[in-house]
Design a protein around this nucleic acid. Structure first.
Length: 664
RNA sequence: GCCCUUGUAGCUCAGUCGGUAGAGCACUUCCUUGGUAAGGAAGAGGUCGGCGGUUCAAAUCCGCUCGAGGGCUCCA
């Protein structure tokens, strides 16, 4: 497939700019759904190393509901091939292989059939069999396509059991409720594609999600909570409060920070900058693109290629190659092999910071050197993965790289962890978990020597133990160049997002042959620490919007005070007060609409302005304002304007967290 | 990228059986100057995501495509 200059060029342009201008999308209503985490014991089937655990009553209930689901499916679609149907932390699912594409209408039918089965009050019966009997039984019920594989997962010597209810029988470790009638409150929620055994190379099955509770009330509460959670979705609040905008014409996953959102971002940056100054970091700036060679040295280009935007090759080079009859495939190959040079939109900041470090000779006396940058990086995320501000293609990290000696490593890691803790604590984000992300020894996606990895992993493990917070070790979660400690939080619908991160890296210093001169006058290799307490400003802000449900603390609020004159007669005094507030560097506006007072209050409430200064006839006469806040809705008496301003300044200086009314 | 769902005004939505579009909020103007979550009136605003097809006629039916939502996979 060879192409001429024009089409080759067009193709390269196409690769570079994949965002044609299309009209703005409409945010469709999203279906009740959430990411379910499969409970550990389910691994009994998938992962024979896990010991069998007794299910809790709720798990039994949901597991039984999934069997009832499978029973109903086989009644309606006898040709369906079943895979697995475990309970999860929020419900259950069953994966089935069925040519008929299930629709939401089908779900209703299936649910109706399930209700019948519940009414039939079938008994769940356990049956233990030998391996040969199991094979025979699976063949007899015509479910050999997936169940035989699942059977093979059960190690020799372990008990093999089936569960039967009515006409349905399924390879299953259990346990179950006694009768189908125990499953009183359940609901099928949605259909999704799911690869068999979670492997992209395998066939995609149809997964039906549902949930079940001991009674109708709990189910109703769950569904209601799900609805309410959607009210604080950062995409909804971001639009309503004009915090950010994503425009098709600009490109998928590329965030436009609107003026109000920019204030939040700027405040967050100021906050972190101040901390960095105190902790001895140096601020740097680096460009958005760099030569491919740089990223070959770092390993990004080979190891991280799928996640990057296509390299940028210069026009002259392209035309020259096209004249020589170079095909697109050849070009791509040459770029890969380094025979053609180009530039890469940077996927990470580290190589640039490394080059700053390496631009000078360093003595051990200089170390640690801490280079910090709000660095914007670009990554080619799969379209199906993009999500508001939390998963995007261009984002700014509050990044820094520390170059230190082996001896300094522990205290540097501790410094970073403290910083992350401080950031989270200041914002009242206490609901996070700590993940020690290690390499998967069986994978080839990592650079560097195993010994370097071992050292780095040990250093982080020790640090996180000293930190004294609960954590879990997760192999396979490491960055390609090193292990990390991640701070992970959940969004409103239960999805987990990695925010702050601290990573130890022995590999990049080696790849870039970094060195410093030690006390012995010999060259030594420094160790690198990568860290970002927010992770990315986009993701962090998205999570923050949901965390506060749009009710930002005063120091972060785009508008901190709104002055509400009761009538136009107070406008003059309102402007005086506004000037005072502005002089105190408080973000303030006056609502001078010709609305009734109640409407002004309503508008400010809906826009979640933390403080309203009410100015009526009485206040104006005495130089007072009456404060209406989120806690104290009204009637706290009038105060002199200066005193009121003092109160606000105090809140800002303290970075006080919002105190809201008790929520139902 | 894959599976399901979805796309009508800035926002939230209605639009019956195909007969060239409606509401509320927001916006503009005018009236109204009011004490803690919506005062009144008028006006402006959309070739129904895009392209193609079926039809005398398409927002409505079909195909392709782009975007969005949920899930899977991935996630440095």
């Amino acid at each position: 497939m060879s192409c001429r200059a024009a089409s080759l060029h067009a193709l390269m342009l196409f690769w570079r700019w994949r965002a044609p201008p299309f009209p703005l999308p409409e945010a469709g209503a999203y279906w009740l759904a959430r990411r379910f985490r499969v409970l550990p014991f389910v691994g009994q089937l998938a992962n024979p190393k896990n010991p069998m655990k007794q299910m809790t009553p709720l798990e039994e209930l949901r597991h039984s509901a999934s069997h009832i689901l499978a029973t109903a499916i086989l009644r309606l679609y006898p040709e369906a091939k079943l895979d697995i149907g475990p309970p999860t932390d929020a419900g259950f699912y069953y994966d089935i292989d069925l040519d008929h594409k299930l629709s939401l209408e089908d779900l209703e039918k299936i649910e109706a059939e399930m209700k019948k089965i519940v009414k039939e009050n079938q008994r769940f019966e356990r049956q233990e069999v030998s391996r040969d009997e199991a094979i025979e039984l699976i063949k007899k019920i015509g479910q050999e396509r997936y169940k035989l594989g699942r059977l093979e997962d059960i190690p020799e010597g372990e008990e093999i059991s089936f569960y039967r209810n009515g006409e349905f029988i399924d390879l299953c470790a259990g346990t179950h409720v006694k009768y189908t009638s125990k499953v009183k409150a359940f609901k099928l929620l949605n259909i999704a594609g799911a690869y068999h055994r979670g492997d992209e190379k395998n066939k995609q099955l149809q997964r039906i999600y549902g949930t079940a509770f001991p009674n109708k009330e709990e189910l109703a509460t769950y569904l209601k909570n799900l609805e309410e959670a959607k009210q604080r979705d950062h995409r909804k609040l971001g639009r309503e409060q004009k915090l950010f905008h994503i425009d098709e014409a600009v490109g998928q996953g590329l965030v436009l920070w609107t003026p109000k959102g920019s204030i939040i971002r700027q405040e967050l940056q100021n906050f972190i900058s101040e901390e960095l100054r105190q902790q001895g970091y140096d601020q740097v700036f680096t460009p958005h693109i760099g030569k491919l060679g740089l990223y070959r040295t770092s390993g990004h280009f080979p190891y991280y290629k799928e996640s990057q935007f296509t390299p940028i090759v210069e026009n002259d080079e392209l035309e020259h190659l096209a004249h020589e009859g170079c095909s697109c495939a050849q070009l791509s190959n040459m770029v890969d092999k380094g025979e053609v040079d180009g530039f890469l939109l940077k996927p990470m900041n580290c190589p640039m910071h490394i080059k700053i470090f390496d631009s000078q000779r360093h003595s051990y006396r200089d170390l640690p050197i801490r280079l910090a940058e709000f660095g914007t990086v670009y990554r080619w995320e799969q379209s199906g993965e993009l999500n508001g501000m939390t998963r995007v293609r261009g984002f700014t990290q509050d990044d820094a790289h520390i170059f230190c000696t082996e001896d300094q490593l522990a205290s540097e890691i501790h410094g970073c962890l403290d910083l992350v803790k401080k950031v989270f604590g200041t914002l009242g984000m206490n609901d996070y978990r700590v993940r020690l992300s290690l390499r998967d020894p069986d994978s080839t996606k990592y650079v560097g020597r195993p010994e370097a990895w071992d050292k780095a992993e040990a250093a982080l493990r020790e640090a996180v133990q000293v930190l004294g917070v609960p954590y879990n070790e997760e192999p396979g979660e490491a960055a390609f160049y090193g292990p990390k400690i991640d701070f992970v939080v959940k969004d409103v619908i239960g999805r987990e997002w990695q925010l702050g991160t601290v990573q130890v890296d022995y590999n990049l210093p080696e790849r870039f042959e970094l060195s410093y001169i030690g006390a012995d006058n010999q060259e030594h290799r420094p160790v690198m620490v990568h860290r970002a307490p927010f992770g990315s400003l986009e993701r962090f802000t998205g999570v923050l919007i949901e965390h506060f449900a749009g009710n930002f603390p005063v120091w972060l609020s785009p508008e901190q005070v709104r002055i509400l004159p009761i009538t136009d007669d107070q406008l003059e005094f309102a402007q005086e007060v506004q000037k005072k507030l502005q002089a105190a560097k408080i973000r303030v506006s006056i609502d001078s609409h010709s609305d009734k007072f109640g409407a002004k209050v309503r508008r400010a409430e809906m826009e979640k302005v933390p403080y309203m200064f009410v100015i009526g006839k009485n206040e104006a006469a005495e130089g007072n304002v009456t404060i209406r806040s989120r806690v104290n809705k009204a009637h706290d008496g009038a105060k002199p304007a200066d005193e009121a301003i003092g109160l606000i300044l105090e809140q800002i200086a303290e970075k006080a967290l919002p105190v809201l009314e008790e929520k139902a």
